[in-house]
């Protein structure tokens, strides 16, 4: 049975995949359906949902189109979530591989740095970083990655420690291959599956962290974010709860979708590996 078919046979993985596809569709069609600035005033303020079909989800305190904001916010959530997770996985895999393969002093220094990062709560780290450097998309991505790379680094190091004892690594040394080439061309690709298994959790956590930063007003001010929308709605929580509930539900569904689809992929590839 192919991994794709196994994936399609798991209902939770399909549910996750459907949510993700919808999310990507929203992000990709945001400028198509809602050209122009989503932060521009589109109608009367605090219009409830399902009243005016040109503004199906209503408007916020400043009369901005909630549906347009939701679409453009999906874009930010995805970009930040994926970019931060990719950065964290890449840095973690490289640091873990170097530490595990080099051993000795290099290992000691790199792992103490990892410890240091792991001791500080990752959200505080992101908060401090953004408040010092200033909010922009790149900074937010960096800030989130700063707190997320330690997990992948530890997993990569553990994998590398066992892989480097295998014959084919000795074989590469006998050939006269450069140690860096052995580490990154021979060892790292074999350690990668275990590291990538963390990606669903990291992407989901990154999306939540981004929302939390935006909620606290530390997101990129020029972009619509779901966290920012929830923060906006907080002021009128009693009179217009839908302004917080709609982006909140979107956030929960997204995190759930990423997690379910990610686990589905890990699950199906793990079965394939154990079979071969």
């Amino acid at each position: 049975m192919s991994p794709l078919r196994r994936f399609l046979l798991a209902p939770e993985a399909i549910a996750g995949a459907i949510i993700l596809v919808a999310l990507f569709a929203m992000a990709l069609t945001a400028s198509l359906f809602f050209p122009g600035d989503p932060q521009a005033i589109a109608g009367p303020a605090l219009l409830p949902p399902f009243q005016d079909w040109s503004l199906p989800l209503g408007t916020d305190r400043l009369g901005r189109d909630v549906l347009a904001e939701l679409f453009h916010g999906a874009r930010t959530s995805l970009v930040v979530g994926l970019a931060a997770a990719a950065a964290a996985l890449a840095v973690g895999a490289i640091v873990g591989t170097l530490a595990g393969f080099a051993g000795g002093l290099v290992d000691e220094v790199l792992m103490r740095i990892t410890d240091a990062f792991q001791t500080v709560p990752s959200f505080l780290l992101a908060l401090a970083f953004v408040s010092v450097v200033g909010p922009s998309l790149g900074v937010v991505v960096t800030a989130i990655a700063l707190g997320a790379w330690t997990g992948p680094a530890r997993v990569a190091r553990a994998e590398v420690l066992s892989i480097r004892e295998r014959d084919f690594v000795a074989g590469a040394r006998v050939i006269g291959m450069h140690p860096l080439e052995i580490a990154f061309r021979e060892v790292l690709p074999n350690a990668l599956p275990a590291v990538l298994a963390l990606s669903s959790v990291i992407v989901a956590a990154a999306i939540l962290t981004e929302a939390a930063l935006s909620f606290l007003g530390l997101g990129d001010p020029n972009r619509v974010t779901w966290g920012g929308m929830i923060a906006e709605g907080r002021a009128v929580l009693r009179t217009a709860p839908f302004l917080s509930i709609i982006p909140g539900v979107a956030l929960v569904l997204t995190v759930l979708g990423v997690y379910l689809a990610g686990e589905g992929v890990v699950e199906t590839t793990a079965v394939r590996r154990s079979l071969s």
């Binding site: 014959d167 084919f168 000795a170 074989g171 590469a172 006998v174 050939i175 021979e186 074999n190």
Partner: peptide, 15 residues
Amino acid sequence: LQMVFQDPLAAFNPR
């Protein structure tokens, strides 16, 4: 100065 290992499968990168 080269080497040939006992287990030819383990001696190569599995990929």
